[in-house]
């Protein structure tokens, strides 16, 4: 059991575990502190400068809450006139540098910048005086699964840290300096030419609409399932709309993947509704495949198997199936078909 720490946030007494940050503690308690670059899966960097709080003490100081650990007896204020003024300026700077066609953005209503704006508010007169970039940066749509729109990027670095800390791929990083800073792959080439594995973990974590899935459609309901691509058994939540699969995301509650997915699990669901997909068994008659009923097809298989027991028979199982299924197949080969000719595609 972690040590308990007691502190005060906005006059409210709050308990926290040792090692937690002020931001984590506040969010857990339902106290919102504006933030963009914080993500609970990643190490804090303190780049967005929105989560500033006031910490009372011998010298009252302003510090970023995402990196400051809680201490016993700490007295924290998340809202002061000074902090609000700084947050407001920060927000206005972000808005002026942001493509604000929110209604056309996939992240609309889910966007962290919108939430910050909702909480902090702007000084309209000042915001109007700020200049937006004259030239919009081109959208990188080279990846078949997602787009990167630098005009919506807030440079929180969550994608960079996800790629580095979680995926250990390091396909992207910050490039250039000052206002020219942007997220780029090696040599600033199109994303598809980087060593990006298209896992999409960055898209999930992008707090704004900079990284978005191609052809995104919001599902009307969701189905919890297990990914069928390999034997890992990653928990998957499929999004359904009009009886078609429109999205896939990792199931955070699944112990196998804790919400994370690979390129196949995240983007490889389109085969389900593909017109070329087989939806009924086919039996070859007179050299041609003909549609058949399941009972007929299974009877044919059982009949053929029973005529071919022994060394004539061999089975190859697949890494896409679970351990249990593989076990059943070898049992079937040995006990039912009477052969040791059993192999597996991953046994090299």
């Amino acid at each position: 059991m972690a040590d308990k720490i007691e502190l005060t946030i906005n006059g409210q007494s709050v308990k926290a575990d040792k090692g937690m940050t002020i931001l984590e503690t506040a969010l857990r308690k339902g106290i919102y502190i504006p933030h963009l670059c914080h993500h609970h899966d990643l190490d804090p960097v303190g780049a967005c400068r929105l989560c500033l709080v006031e910490i009372a003490g011998k010298w009252t100081k302003i510090a970023i809450s995402c990196k400051t650990e809680v201490q016993d007896g700490m007295v924290v204020r998340t809202e002061t006139p000074e902090i609000n003024e700084m947050r407001q300026v920060t927000l206005e700077l972000l808005i002026a540098d942001h493509d604000t066609d929110c209604l056309a953005c996939e992240q609309n209503t889910k966007c962290a910048l919108q939430r910050v704006a909702d909480h902090v508010g702007v000084n309209k007169e000042r915001l109007q005086r700020l200049k937006s970039r004259e030239v919009k940066a081109p959208i990188d749509d080279s990846n078949p699964f997602f787009n990167f729109d630098p005009n919506r990027c807030v440079l929180c670095g969550i994608c960079v840290r996800t790629c580095d800390e979680l995926q250990n791929v390091q396909a992207i990083d910050f490039a250039n300096r000052g206002l020219g800073t942007k997220i780029a792959g090696f040599g600033d080439k199109p994303r598809i030419e980087s060593n990006c594995e298209s896992c999409g973990e960055c898209i999930v974590r992008c707090p704004v609409g900079a990284l978005t899935e191609k052809d995104y459609m919001k599902p009307t309901h969701q189905v919890k399932t297990v990914c069928s691509f390999c034997g890992c058994g990653c928990g998957l939540i499929l999004g359904v709309r009009d009886n078609r699969l429109v999205s896939a995301r990792g199931d955070v509650s699944s112990p196998a993947n804790k919400g994370r997915l690979c390129v196949k699990g995240r983007f490889g669901y389109k085969f389900v509704n593909h017109p070329d997909r087989l939806t009924s068994p086919l039996i070859k008659r007179n050299g041609e495949f003909v549609k058949a009923e399941w009972d007929e097809a299974l009877d044919l298989v059982a009949d053929t198997f029973s005529k071919n027991k022994g060394e004539k028979f061999a089975a190859i199982s697949s890494a896409k199936t679970t351990n249990e299924d593989n076990y059943v197949l070898q049992k079937f080969a040995r006990a039912v078909m009477g052969t040791n000719n059993i192999d597996h595609c991953a046994r090299l």
Binding site: V45, L93, A96, L155, T181
Partner: peptide
């Protein structure tokens, strides 16, 4: 300073540029 800002923090990267614009 605006040109030499490392570009990670919002206030320095964007704030210096907007002040420079004004």
């Amino acid at each position: 300073t605006q040109k030499e800002s490392c570009g990670q923090c919002t206030l320095c990267k964007l704030g210096t540029k907007q002040m420079l614009n004004i």
